[in-house]
Amino acid sequence: MRTFWTFFFFATIFCSSHAKTDNLLDGADLGYGEYLSGECVTCHSKDGVDKGIPAINGLDAEVFASIMHAYKIGDMDHPVMMMVASRLDEEQIASLAVYFAAMPDAN
């Protein structure tokens, strides 16, 4: 799964002129990320196990933020994720990114 996300990360960098990798994590607030994560863990299992929806625990924070920005601008096109990302601003994405990066993955 890590390989899968890494592929998307680099695909996003190459395909998008919007990716601003030098400040993706600016304004990150771990406590806020924990609150916002409630919306994610209804589907992305908190155990960090992929049973039909990708695991996101322990994902590199910059990869996480890049993916969310890709959904937000439509470079990645999953209807649920586009909806979720559409109302997240940069600080909210950064907060989620550092929160999930700190969560233990299933391995």
Partner: peptide, 13 residues
């Protein structure tokens, strides 16, 4: 497949 993942996710939650 996604709905199966959701069931696991929400019941774990």
């Amino acid at each position: 497949q996604e709905s199966i993942g959701w069931y696991e996710g929400i019941t774990t939650d």
